[in-house]
């Protein structure tokens, strides 16, 4: 078992989920409630990682993060280290390729709240913040939980993008999915099987817990 890779994967997934929570809520809510021109284009951009081959997506991220790109240069100037092949670069890539998994369930959850309910909240004197905290988040909670679990599990399993942007540096960017691939390449089937089984059981458990939790919440909300 490659504990370093596992820990790295869990750190990456945990941070991704933590950062995607506010981003997903803000973006999902925006897409659910705002009628703006070009909304379809914005939605298509968010959904892009779902349809693009990970290598293609990873390639573009690599170019965008590279030392010659504006983002890469700015990062280098600010932190005195490159963005590509670093944990930070991997985290940024992870945030981007997880956007559809986080935003779409949250958007659907916010859309499912009846318009009248939000109107009633406003008529009860609640400001937008209070409507978000008292009404929207409690009602959209199952969708938000699903979004976070999907993002977490997807981060653990992502391979192509991570390899392209991270480059499989042990302790820095080598996640457990890549470690499994490495073990198979090195004909270490037992280690590969152990890690694969662990990942399988872990993913299954998280998703089962989510389904269980969202059903309970669903029942509570009637």
């Amino acid at each position: 078992m490659d504990w370093v890779a596992l820990r790295l994967s869990l750190e990456l997934a945990g941070l991704t989920v933590l950062l995607l929570l506010p981003i997903g809520v803000a973006l999902g809510r925006f897409l659910a409630y705002r009628e703006i021109r070009g909304k379809e284009i914005l939605e298509a951009l968010v959904a892009l990682p779902l349809v693009l081959p990970p290598t293609v997506f990873g390639y573009y991220l690599l170019v965008a993060f590279g030392a010659t790109s504006p983002l890469g240069r700015a990062w280098q100037a600010l932190f005195d280290r490159p963005l590509v092949f670093s944990f930070e670069g991997l985290l940024l890539a992870s945030l981007i390729f997880n956007l559809p998994f986080a935003v779409q369930p949250m958007q659907r959850a916010f859309e499912a709240i009846p318009t009248d309910l939000r109107a009633a909240a406003a008529c009860c004197g609640m400001s937008s913040w209070r409507v978000l905290l008292w009404i929207e988040l409690p009602l959209a909670w199952p969708g938000i939980l699903t979004a976070l679990v999907l993002s977490f599990a997807h981060t653990l399993g992502e391979f192509g993008v991570v390899l392209m942007v991270g480059g499989a540096i042990p302790g820095e960017t080598e996640t457990i999915a890549i470690a499994i691939y490495d073990r198979v390449q090195a004909f270490d089937d037992r280690a590969a099987a152990r890690m694969a089984t662990f990942l399988l059981l872990f993913s299954l458990a998280t998703i089962a817990v989510t389904f269980f939790a969202s059903r309970r919440v669903g029942r509570r909300l009637g």
Binding site: D116, L117, A119, A120, A121, W134, I135, L139, L221, G222
Partner: peptide, 8 residues
């Protein structure tokens, strides 16, 4: 019309 009570 729908009462719009907060279900939770």
């Amino acid at each position: 019309q729908s009462y719009a009570l907060f279900p939770h």
